[in-house]
């Protein structure tokens, strides 16, 4: 059974190495999590802590496609990283049953000095695939990215679009139970984008739970069946997409922040 159970999850980021000057700026910021100053104790200096997630609780089961909505710094990416197991909550608990695949900004382990083939292997391993699995999927990845002989060359010789193709082909070859997506992943030129769309849909089809963070209402509407509105690290609303998106646009403070 694939499930995600979050119970009063709270995440605090201690900020190291900020001077008073940068502090003043952050204090007046309108976006982002709640910034708190922990009083100086007998043994520790005063330090700045950003509360990125505040008492977040929810449950996801098979078939859930959750869209995360909120302004910059509302806690969407932090929540995704908590689900990925990167950050362990300071208080509260998170239980994730199933194979998790995070697809964030870049493919983990991609190295520009290595060839395309080498990167397929390294990234595949970091995405949790074994050697056999990678070998089984190699042809599919090679076919899909259409990079041909370029795969023999170091990735730094690729154009930006070609790197994206490679990254996308590797990232979408996995078979996760739980898929975590940050902002969706961009995908090269128009023709490739159309094929990428199909491949993405196929990936989501074979995934039991999807959590997608995005600023695009259209993307959330097309891919998700539930939505969660986050603001300053806590859940404002979780429910049907239309209602949550409507609520998001009605909130005046966030609307003024681009």
């Amino acid at each position: 059974m694939t499930t995600v159970i979050a119970n009063n999850v709270t995440i605090d980021f201690p900020i190291y190495g900020t001077g008073h000057r940068s502090l003043r700026h952050t204090l007046f910021a309108r976006t982002g999590g709640l910034i708190r100053h922990e009083p100086a104790g007998r043994h520790r200096q005063q330090r700045v802590v950003v509360r990125a997630l505040d008492n977040v609780s929810f449950t996801l089961t098979s078939g859930d496609r959750l869209g995360l909505i909120g302004h910059n710094g509302a806690g969407k990416s932090t929540l995704l990283r908590v689900l990925a197991g990167v950050y362990t909550p300071d208080s509260g608990s998170i239980r994730v049953d199933g194979r998790v695949s995070p697809l964030f900004n870049s493919v983990p382990g991609l190295d520009p000095d290595d060839s395309g083939y080498e990167n397929i292997k390294t990234c595949g391993m970091f995405l949790g695939m074994g050697f056999d699995e990678i070998n089984r999927k190699l042809q599919d990845i090679v076919d899909f990215c259409e990079l041909g002989e370029y795969l023999e060359l170091p990735v730094r010789t690729y154009s930006t679009g070609m790197v994206t193709r490679l990254g996308f082909a590797i990232a979408t070859s996995i078979d996760p139970d739980i898929l975590l997506l940050d902002e969706g992943i961009a995908a090269g030129d128009a023709r490739f984008a159309a094929r990428a769309e199909g491949r993405m849909q196929a990936l989501i089809q074979r995934t039991r739970i999807l959590v997608l963070a995005s600023h695009s209402d259209a993307l959330i509407t097309s891919m998700c069946n539930r939505a969660m509105l986050l603001e300053k690290g806590h859940i404002v609303e979780i429910g049907p997409i239309d209602e949550v998106i409507k609520r998001y646009h009605q909130r005046p403070v966030e609307a003024s922040v681009a």
């Binding site: 990925a84 197991g85 995070p102 870049s106 983990p108 382990g109 970091f126």
Partner: peptide, 9 residues
């Protein structure tokens, strides 16, 4: 850093 802040491994 890129691996640690993206993956649990």
């Amino acid at each position: 850093v890129n691996l640690i802040t993206q993956l649990n491994f």
